[in-house]
């Protein structure tokens, strides 16, 4: 079984791919990656982003894909970048697998009760990793 956890940070998305083998052992695959859009006003870059994401999802062939949900009503320092919602929309247009939105609260609550067997390879992947881990266990 394979899962992809996605964290959207402004104009960049961080994707972590986890694989559970027949013995139930979980590993982070080298497919884990990140994609970004330098200028969201350029249609070509948005199309490139769409192609990258679709090609990535197709290549990985994950059973579950989800995005860490952000609070669209957040204000001040807590408000997510508008660009991130544009990227989220592009990701959600992928048709071959359902894309879920999972709140950080849900993930944290699960991980509080269930200790992780492995950790993310890079610190910046922590949130995406936790989501991919939550997906693979549920």
């Amino acid at each position: 079984m394979k899962t992809i956890g996605i964290q959207i940070k402004s104009n960049e998305i961080i994707l972590v791919v986890l694989l559970k083998d027949e013995n139930g052992s979980i590993t982070q695959t080298k497919e884990s990656s990140k994609f970004k859009v330098d200028d969201h006003n350029q249609q070509e870059q948005i199309k490139q982003f769409r192609n990258q994401v679709n090609s990535f999802f197709d290549s990985v062939g994950a059973d579950k894909i989800a995005i860490v949900a952000r609070n669209a009503k957040g204000k001040g320092l807590m408000s997510p970048s508008p660009v991130s919602f544009k990227l989220e929309g592009v990701i959600q247009l992928y048709e071959k697998t359902q894309i879920e939105l999972v709140s950080k609260k849900t993930i944290d609550a699960y991980l509080k009760k269930n200790e992780k067997e492995i950790t993310a390879e890079k610190i910046l992947q922590n949130d995406s990793f936790d989501l991919a881990y939550y997906l693979i266990k549920n």
Partner: peptide, 12 residues
């Protein structure tokens, strides 16, 4: 590149 999408990312 382990799959076409990672190659595509560098092409972009």
């Amino acid at each position: 590149y382990s799959n076409p999408s990672l190659f595509l990312k560098d092409i972009h």
